[in-house]
Protein backbone atom coordinates (compact mmCIF):
# COMPACT_ATOMS: atom_id res chain seq x y z
CA UNK A 1 0.00 0.00 0.00
CA UNK A 2 1.48 3.34 -1.01
CA UNK A 3 1.74 6.55 0.94
CA UNK A 4 -1.13 8.00 -1.05
CA UNK A 5 -3.38 5.11 -0.10
CA UNK A 6 -2.76 5.64 3.63
CA UNK A 7 -3.49 9.32 3.27
CA UNK A 8 -6.60 8.71 1.22
CA UNK A 9 -7.94 6.13 3.65
CA UNK A 10 -7.24 8.43 6.60
CA UNK A 11 -8.80 11.40 4.88
CA UNK A 12 -11.94 9.45 3.94
CA UNK A 13 -12.30 8.22 7.49
CA UNK A 14 -11.84 11.73 8.92
CA UNK A 15 -14.23 13.42 6.52
CA UNK A 16 -16.94 10.80 6.94
CA UNK A 17 -16.80 11.44 10.67
CA UNK A 18 -16.47 15.23 10.59
CA UNK A 19 -19.27 15.53 13.16
CA UNK A 20 -16.75 14.50 15.83
CA UNK A 21 -14.76 17.66 15.12
CA UNK A 22 -17.97 19.64 15.43
CA UNK A 23 -18.74 18.14 18.86
CA UNK A 24 -15.20 18.77 20.04
CA UNK A 25 -15.22 22.34 18.75
CA UNK A 26 -18.48 23.00 20.55
CA UNK A 27 -17.28 21.61 23.87
CA UNK A 28 -13.91 23.34 23.69
CA UNK A 29 -15.63 26.61 22.79
CA UNK A 30 -17.92 26.38 25.81
CA UNK A 31 -14.95 25.76 28.13
CA UNK A 32 -13.05 28.61 26.49
CA UNK A 33 -16.00 30.96 26.93
CA UNK A 34 -16.18 30.10 30.62
CA UNK A 35 -12.43 30.69 30.91
CA UNK A 36 -12.47 34.13 29.27
CA UNK A 37 -15.63 35.42 30.89
CA UNK A 38 -13.97 37.12 33.90
CA UNK A 39 -11.26 38.87 31.87
CA UNK A 40 -13.69 39.71 29.07
CA UNK A 41 -16.18 41.34 31.39
CA UNK A 42 -13.38 43.24 33.13
CA UNK A 43 -12.18 44.72 29.86
CA UNK A 44 -15.68 45.47 28.64
CA UNK A 45 -16.72 47.19 31.83
CA UNK A 46 -13.52 49.24 31.86
CA UNK A 47 -13.76 50.38 28.30
CA UNK A 48 -16.47 52.99 28.34
CA UNK A 49 -19.49 50.91 29.23
CA UNK A 50 -19.26 48.21 26.55
CA UNK A 51 -18.43 50.58 23.76
CA UNK A 52 -15.44 52.71 23.12
CA UNK A 53 -15.09 56.40 22.53
CA UNK A 54 -13.57 57.57 19.28
CA UNK A 55 -11.24 60.02 21.05
CA UNK A 56 -8.34 57.84 21.98
CA UNK A 57 -4.85 59.08 22.64
CA UNK A 58 -3.47 55.56 22.38
CA UNK A 59 -3.90 52.62 20.03
CA UNK A 60 -6.71 50.34 21.13
CA UNK A 61 -4.31 47.51 22.01
CA UNK A 62 -2.53 49.73 24.53
CA UNK A 63 -5.86 50.61 26.11
CA UNK A 64 -6.41 46.92 26.71
CA UNK A 65 -2.96 46.56 28.25
CA UNK A 66 -3.69 49.60 30.40
CA UNK A 67 -6.93 48.09 31.66
CA UNK A 68 -5.11 44.88 32.52
CA UNK A 69 -2.30 46.78 34.27
CA UNK A 70 -4.79 48.87 36.21
CA UNK A 71 -6.53 45.72 37.37
CA UNK A 72 -3.44 43.63 37.95
CA UNK A 73 -4.73 42.55 41.35
CA UNK A 74 -7.11 40.18 39.61
CA UNK A 75 -4.28 38.29 37.90
CA UNK A 76 -3.51 36.00 40.83
CA UNK A 77 -7.11 34.80 41.38
CA UNK A 78 -7.64 34.65 37.63
CA UNK A 79 -4.53 32.49 37.19
CA UNK A 80 -5.83 30.12 39.87
CA UNK A 81 -9.18 30.05 38.07
CA UNK A 82 -7.45 29.31 34.75
CA UNK A 83 -5.33 26.53 36.25
CA UNK A 84 -8.47 24.99 37.74
CA UNK A 85 -10.21 25.22 34.37
CA UNK A 86 -7.26 23.59 32.59
CA UNK A 87 -7.00 20.80 35.19
CA UNK A 88 -10.69 20.02 34.97
CA UNK A 89 -10.44 20.26 31.19
CA UNK A 90 -7.64 17.71 31.20
CA UNK A 91 -9.97 15.11 32.70
CA UNK A 92 -12.69 16.17 30.30
CA UNK A 93 -10.29 15.91 27.37
CA UNK A 94 -9.28 12.36 28.28
CA UNK A 95 -12.96 11.55 28.19
CA UNK A 96 -13.31 13.30 24.83
CA UNK A 97 -10.28 11.48 23.50
CA UNK A 98 -12.13 8.23 24.24
CA UNK A 99 -15.03 9.54 22.18
CA UNK A 100 -12.72 10.67 19.39
CA UNK A 101 -10.76 7.41 19.06
CA UNK A 102 -13.86 5.30 19.70
CA UNK A 103 -15.91 6.91 16.93
CA UNK A 104 -12.99 7.35 14.54
CA UNK A 105 -12.04 3.70 14.66
CA UNK A 106 -15.50 2.20 14.77
CA UNK A 107 -16.63 0.39 11.63
CA UNK A 108 -20.01 2.02 11.98
CA UNK A 109 -19.62 5.57 10.73
CA UNK A 110 -22.91 6.80 12.15
CA UNK A 111 -21.97 9.56 14.51
CA UNK A 112 -24.25 11.08 17.07
CA UNK A 113 -23.68 12.70 20.39
CA UNK A 114 -24.88 9.73 22.42
CA UNK A 115 -22.51 7.17 20.87
CA UNK A 116 -19.70 9.74 21.00
CA UNK A 117 -20.24 10.21 24.74
CA UNK A 118 -20.72 6.48 25.25
CA UNK A 119 -17.31 5.83 23.72
CA UNK A 120 -15.89 8.55 25.95
CA UNK A 121 -17.06 6.84 29.08
CA UNK A 122 -16.13 3.37 27.74
CA UNK A 123 -12.48 4.24 27.22
CA UNK A 124 -11.98 6.88 29.92
CA UNK A 125 -10.14 4.76 32.49
CA UNK A 126 -8.05 2.93 29.92
CA UNK A 127 -7.02 6.19 28.29
CA UNK A 128 -6.23 7.72 31.67
CA UNK A 129 -4.07 4.72 32.55
CA UNK A 130 -2.37 4.86 29.16
CA UNK A 131 -1.47 8.46 29.88
CA UNK A 132 -0.06 7.65 33.31
CA UNK A 133 2.05 4.83 31.87
CA UNK A 134 3.23 7.27 29.20
CA UNK A 135 4.84 9.54 31.84
CA UNK A 136 8.07 7.48 32.11
CA UNK A 137 8.31 7.63 28.32
CA UNK A 138 8.05 11.42 28.59
CA UNK A 139 10.96 11.35 31.03
CA UNK A 140 12.97 9.33 28.49
CA UNK A 141 11.96 11.82 25.84
CA UNK A 142 13.36 14.77 27.82
CA UNK A 143 16.51 12.84 28.66
CA UNK A 144 17.08 11.95 25.03
CA UNK A 145 16.36 15.51 23.97
CA UNK A 146 18.91 16.93 26.40
CA UNK A 147 21.47 14.41 25.24
CA UNK A 148 20.99 15.11 21.55
CA UNK A 149 20.79 18.87 22.12
CA UNK A 150 24.06 18.96 24.08
CA UNK A 151 26.37 19.34 21.03
CA UNK A 152 24.16 22.14 19.72
CA UNK A 153 24.38 23.93 23.05
CA UNK A 154 28.16 23.53 23.10
CA UNK A 155 28.33 24.97 19.59
CA UNK A 156 26.16 27.90 20.66
CA UNK A 157 28.16 28.52 23.85
CA UNK A 158 31.43 28.81 21.93
CA UNK A 159 30.04 31.03 19.18
CA UNK A 160 31.60 34.35 18.27
CA UNK A 161 28.63 35.51 16.21
CA UNK A 162 24.87 35.27 16.57
CA UNK A 163 24.43 32.79 13.73
CA UNK A 164 25.39 29.63 15.64
CA UNK A 165 23.12 30.78 18.48
CA UNK A 166 20.12 31.26 16.19
CA UNK A 167 20.77 28.14 14.14
CA UNK A 168 21.29 25.91 17.17
CA UNK A 169 18.20 27.30 18.93
CA UNK A 170 16.08 26.48 15.90
CA UNK A 171 17.70 23.10 15.38
CA UNK A 172 16.90 22.32 19.00
CA UNK A 173 13.31 23.28 18.37
CA UNK A 174 13.22 21.01 15.34
CA UNK A 175 14.79 18.20 17.35
CA UNK A 176 12.18 18.70 20.06
CA UNK A 177 9.34 18.47 17.56
CA UNK A 178 10.77 15.39 15.84
CA UNK A 179 11.31 13.54 19.11
CA UNK A 180 7.95 14.58 20.52
CA UNK A 181 6.28 13.29 17.34
CA UNK A 182 8.02 9.95 17.80
CA UNK A 183 6.82 9.58 21.37
CA UNK A 184 3.33 10.88 20.58
CA UNK A 185 3.15 8.23 17.90
CA UNK A 186 3.52 5.59 20.58
CA UNK A 187 0.64 6.95 22.65
CA UNK A 188 -1.63 7.19 19.61
CA UNK A 189 -0.80 3.65 18.61
CA UNK A 190 -1.50 2.31 22.09
CA UNK A 191 -4.95 3.91 21.99
CA UNK A 192 -5.64 2.56 18.51
CA UNK A 193 -4.80 -0.91 19.78
CA UNK A 194 -6.97 -0.44 22.89
CA UNK A 195 -9.96 0.52 20.75
CA UNK A 196 -9.56 -1.76 17.74
CA UNK A 197 -8.28 -4.88 19.46
CA UNK A 198 -10.05 -4.43 22.80
CA UNK A 199 -6.74 -4.90 24.56
CA UNK A 200 -5.94 -3.83 28.09
CA UNK A 201 -3.42 -1.05 28.51
CA UNK A 202 -0.26 -3.04 29.31
CA UNK A 203 -0.70 -5.52 26.45
CA UNK A 204 -1.49 -2.59 24.17
CA UNK A 205 1.80 -0.94 25.10
CA UNK A 206 3.68 -4.19 24.50
CA UNK A 207 2.05 -4.67 21.13
CA UNK A 208 2.64 -1.04 20.14
CA UNK A 209 6.34 -1.21 21.07
CA UNK A 210 6.69 -4.48 19.17
CA UNK A 211 5.01 -2.91 16.15
CA UNK A 212 7.16 0.19 16.30
CA UNK A 213 10.35 -1.84 16.62
CA UNK A 214 9.61 -3.18 13.12
CA UNK A 215 8.00 -0.21 11.43
CA UNK A 216 9.16 2.80 13.38
CA UNK A 217 10.93 4.81 10.69
CA UNK A 218 8.30 4.45 7.99
CA UNK A 219 5.52 5.12 10.52
CA UNK A 220 7.38 8.15 11.93
CA UNK A 221 8.12 9.41 8.42
CA UNK A 222 4.45 9.19 7.54
CA UNK A 223 3.53 11.05 10.71
CA UNK A 224 6.09 13.79 10.04
CA UNK A 225 5.02 14.19 6.45
CA UNK A 226 1.46 14.64 7.55
CA UNK A 227 2.61 17.04 10.25
CA UNK A 228 4.52 19.09 7.70
CA UNK A 229 1.50 19.40 5.44
CA UNK A 230 -0.70 20.47 8.36
CA UNK A 231 1.94 22.97 9.57
CA UNK A 232 2.21 24.52 6.09
CA UNK A 233 -1.56 24.87 5.83
CA UNK A 234 -1.61 26.49 9.31
CA UNK A 235 1.08 28.94 8.23
CA UNK A 236 -0.87 29.83 5.10
CA UNK A 237 -3.96 30.30 7.20
CA UNK A 238 -2.19 32.70 9.53
CA UNK A 239 -0.78 34.66 6.60
CA UNK A 240 -4.21 35.02 5.07
CA UNK A 241 -5.56 36.14 8.47
CA UNK A 242 -2.91 38.86 8.55
CA UNK A 243 -4.25 40.42 5.38
CA UNK A 244 -7.74 40.98 6.74
CA UNK A 245 -8.30 44.43 8.14
CA UNK A 246 -9.92 44.50 11.56
CA UNK A 247 -11.03 48.12 11.30
CA UNK A 248 -14.48 47.35 9.91
CA UNK A 249 -17.26 45.10 11.08
CA UNK A 250 -17.07 42.95 7.94
CA UNK A 251 -13.34 42.44 8.43
CA UNK A 252 -13.83 41.55 12.07
CA UNK A 253 -16.57 39.05 11.23
CA UNK A 254 -14.43 37.44 8.53
CA UNK A 255 -11.52 37.25 11.00
CA UNK A 256 -13.68 35.57 13.63
CA UNK A 257 -15.12 33.09 11.11
CA UNK A 258 -11.65 32.32 9.74
CA UNK A 259 -10.29 31.82 13.24
CA UNK A 260 -13.05 29.36 14.10
CA UNK A 261 -12.62 27.58 10.76
CA UNK A 262 -8.94 27.29 11.60
CA UNK A 263 -9.81 25.53 14.84
CA UNK A 264 -12.11 23.18 12.99
CA UNK A 265 -9.29 22.48 10.57
CA UNK A 266 -6.97 21.60 13.47
CA UNK A 267 -9.56 19.23 14.89
CA UNK A 268 -10.08 17.61 11.51
CA UNK A 269 -6.32 17.34 11.15
CA UNK A 270 -6.24 15.45 14.44
CA UNK A 271 -8.86 13.09 13.06
CA UNK A 272 -6.80 12.72 9.89
CA UNK A 273 -3.74 11.74 11.94
CA UNK A 274 -5.74 9.04 13.74
CA UNK A 275 -7.23 7.83 10.47
CA UNK A 276 -3.85 7.58 8.73
CA UNK A 277 -2.21 5.91 11.75
CA UNK A 278 -5.01 3.40 11.92
CA UNK A 279 -4.85 2.69 8.23
CA UNK A 280 -1.06 2.17 8.42
CA UNK A 281 -1.34 -0.02 11.52
CA UNK A 282 -4.16 -2.17 10.20
CA UNK A 283 -2.24 -2.86 6.99
CA UNK A 284 1.03 -3.67 8.69
CA UNK A 285 0.04 -5.30 11.96
CA UNK A 286 0.08 -8.78 10.51
CA UNK A 287 3.75 -8.33 9.64
CA UNK A 288 4.74 -8.04 13.32
Amino acid sequence: MSLGNYLEAGLNRALSRFKIALYLWLIISVVALIAITPIGSLVRSNLGHLTLSQDLSMPFELNIVEVLISNQNIFAPYTVFLIAIVLISMLLFIFLKGGLFGRMLNQDNRINISNFLADGSRYFWKFLLSLIIFLPFLFIFFLLFRLLAAPLEAWSDGAVTEWPVIISANLKLLLFVLLLAAFKLLLDLVRIIIVTESKKVWPAYCLAIKFLSRHFFSFWGLYLLLGLVVALICLGWLLVGQQISSNHLAGILISIILAQAFLMFRLLARQLFIGVEFSYYSKRKDKV
Partner: peptide, 20 residues
Protein backbone atom coordinates in the same frame (compact mmCIF):
# COMPACT_ATOMS: atom_id res chain seq x y z
CA UNK B 1 -6.34 56.95 30.46
CA UNK B 2 -8.81 54.18 29.63
CA UNK B 3 -11.19 55.40 32.31
CA UNK B 4 -11.22 58.87 30.76
CA UNK B 5 -13.78 57.79 28.16
CA UNK B 6 -17.40 56.85 28.43
CA UNK B 7 -19.70 56.22 25.52
CA UNK B 8 -23.36 55.30 25.72
CA UNK B 9 -23.42 54.43 22.08
CA UNK B 10 -20.55 53.84 19.81
CA UNK B 11 -18.56 51.42 17.82
CA UNK B 12 -18.56 47.89 19.19
CA UNK B 13 -16.28 46.58 16.47
CA UNK B 14 -13.09 46.78 18.44
CA UNK B 15 -14.61 45.14 21.48
CA UNK B 16 -16.17 42.40 19.35
CA UNK B 17 -12.86 41.80 17.62
CA UNK B 18 -11.12 41.68 20.96
CA UNK B 19 -13.61 39.17 22.35
CA UNK B 20 -13.08 37.07 19.25
Amino acid sequence: LSNNYYALKGSREKISGLTG
